[in-house]
C-alpha cells in the first residue's frame, strides 16, 4: 500500500515541509525540500529515524555533579531509552576534557559517548 507522510525537515533550522510517498521501506517520491539534505532526511525518517542523544553523566569529584555528554553520531531513535540506562549507570571521575570519550561504541551503534564540556575537579 502506498502511503504519504508530511515531515518537517530538521536537517537545518529552516524546517521545510517535506512530503514523502512510500510503500514499506521503499521511497517513491519526495517533495517540498529546498535542498538535497531534505531528501536524505526524509528517506531516513521513513526507513529508520536516528538522532543525536544529548544527556548527562554523573561525575565523581567534579566541580559539578554532572557532566553533559552526547553521542558522537546519530543513533537509532528506538535505542534512546536503553542508551539512557547505560549512561545513567555510569559514573566518571573528574577532570574531563570536552570531546573525551566516556563510553565507547554504545549499544554497538558505532557512536561513542563524549563529554561536551570541560569538567574540572571540585575545588
Amino acid at each position: 500500500m502506498i502511503e504519504t507522510k508530511t515531515l518537517t525537515c530538521v536537517a537545518c533550522p529552516k524546517g521545510c515541509e517535506v512530503t514523502v510517498e512510500y510503500e514499506g521501506d521503499e521511497i517513491i517520491d519526495i517533495k517540498g525540500n529546498a535542498c538535497p539534505q531534505g531528501q536524505d532526511y526524509a528517506k531516513e525518517e521513513i526507513v529508520a529515524p536516528t538522532r543525536i542523544l544529548p544527556t548527562t553523566i554523573r561525575v565523581k569529584n567534579g566541580a559539578l555533579p554532572l557532566c553533559p555528554v552526547k553521542t558522537t553520531k546519530q543513533i537509532p531513535l528506538e535505542n534512546m531509552f536503553e542508551a539512557m540506562q547505560i549512561i545513567g549507570k555510569k559514573e566518571i571521575e573528574a577532570p574531563v576534557k570536552m570531546g573525551e570519550v566516556l563510553i565507547e561504541n554504545i549499544m554497538n551503534t558505532g557512536a561513542d559517548i563524549v563529554a561536551t564540556r570541560d569538567m574540572p575537579e571540585e575545588i
Binding site: 554523573r58 555533579p65 536503553e82 539512557m84 540506562q85 545513567g88 549507570k89
Partner: peptide
C-alpha cells in the same frame, strides 16, 4: 536525584 528514575521508569517510557 538525577538518574534515580532510571531503571524503574525510563524503560516504561520507551
Amino acid at each position: 536525584k538525577i538518574k534515580q528514575l532510571l531503571g524503574s521508569r525510563v524503560m516504561g517510557n520507551a
